[in-house]
């Protein structure tokens, strides 16, 4: 029979086993994790290191020259900004209003459920399938029929900036709605009751209590959707992205005395992400354009990184705000 001292004596084999099975796998997980993060980061670093050399103001603003082997990405930057601007105009109000309806007005839980499920489903649809819808519905159905109604020939029934923006809008709509609903949900109900009990109407309550507090959360969603749209390529392949355009898609709104330049949404456009694609796969001389490819990729990655970082900072700020509100 063992005495107490023997029982209490450290069991070396057990200790070793525990240490061995304890530390080695943890160490392994650590090493693998660091390696993966470093590998992923090195992909970006490699692109940055090669791209930063060609980036200057001239590269960002000038047009491609010499059969796209020289010059800059000015028209692509312009096209990207124009498409995203149109997309924001089309989608952001719709998304935010829809989210307000879902979170603040719906009484029928069944209807809320259906809408939420369909939004979640849409969020999982591959972007190329959304592109199919954009071409088939916006261009060939809506555009063609508008042309027939207004007798405008082939103005709208062809792939163009307007339809590309609308399609990207459909693509980011779930993102905007979901983030906005989350932002609205995070506003404590107590404050809603307080506002109502002080005699404000539902809209006054939403306008003065709910929306101001949900602002950074909503902004996070908008920024994320811009970043998503800027990085998207697949649906734009057949929605009016141009290989090269000599002129910017700009039209002049004639007001008699002077003309206001504005984006022409019925034109084709150049797009940063598509520009990378054509430079690498359809260029006449892929080796000669390599610096341009790296430069364009760097600009695009930098743009999306910047947007995502801003979104993350806003989210942190938003959470802090709420913590202040709730008192913990």
């Amino acid at each position: 029979m063992k005495n107490a001292a023997e029982i209490l004596k450290p069991n070396h084999t057990g200790e070793f086993k525990k240490n061995f099975t304890g530390n080695i796998p943890i160490l392994g997980i650590r090493i693998i994790s660091y390696t993966v993060v470093l590998l992923l980061a090195s992909v970006l670093m490699y692109i940055f290191a090669n791209g930063i050399k060609v980036i200057n103001w001239e590269f960002l603003l000038s047009a491609p020259r010499n059969n796209m082997t020289e010059g800059g990405i000015g028209p692509a930057v312009f096209g990207t900004l124009a498409v995203i601007f149109l997309m924001i105009v089309i989608t952001v109000p719709l998304g935010i209003f829809a989210a307000v309806y879902i979170n603040e007005y719906i009484k029928d839980r069944w209807l809320a459920r259906i809408i939420t499920i369909s939004i979640n489903t849409l969020a999982g649809v591959p972007s190329i399938v959304i592109g199919l819808f954009g071409l088939g519905f916006f261009v060939l159905f809506v555009g063609k029929n508008l042309d027939e109604v207004f007798n405008t020939g082939m103005l709208l029934g062809k792939p163009a900036m307007l339809w590309a923006s609308a399609t990207l809008g459909v693509l980011v709509l779930p993102l905007i709605i979901v983030t906005t609903v989350e932002a609205l949900k995070s506003v404590p109900d107590i404050q809603r009751y307080a506002a109502i009990s002080l005699g404000s109407t539902r809209w006054e309550m939403i306008k003065t209590i709910v929306l101001p507090q949900a602002r950074s959360g909503i902004l996070t969603g908008i920024i994320l959707s811009i970043s998503r749209a800027a990085g998207e390529t697949a649906p734009l392949l057949f929605l009016g992205c141009a290989f090269f355009l000599p002129d910017l898609p700009v039209t002049y709104l004639d007001l008699g005395l002077f003309a206001i330049p504005m984006i022409n949404p019925a034109e084709q456009f150049m797009y940063l992400s598509y520009h990378i694609f054509v430079l690498t796969t359809q260029s006449t001389n892929p080796t000669l354009t390599k610096p341009l490819q790296y430069g364009t990729a760097t600009v695009l990655v930098f743009l999306t990184l910047l947007l995502n970082m801003t979104a993350i900072i806003y989210r942190i700020k938003f959470r802090k705000n709420l913590e202040g509100l709730r008192g913990y």
């Binding site: 992909v43 970006l44 692109i47 970043s227 998503r228 800027a230 990085g231 998207e232 390529t233 697949a234 992400s273 598509y274 990378i276 694609f277 690498t280 490819q293 990729a297 695009l300 990655v301 999306t304 995502n308």
Partner: peptide, 9 residues
């Protein structure tokens, strides 16, 4: 959130 076209490139 890296643009997939950059990964493809």
């Amino acid at each position: 959130g890296i643009p997939t076209v950059v990964v493809g490139f």
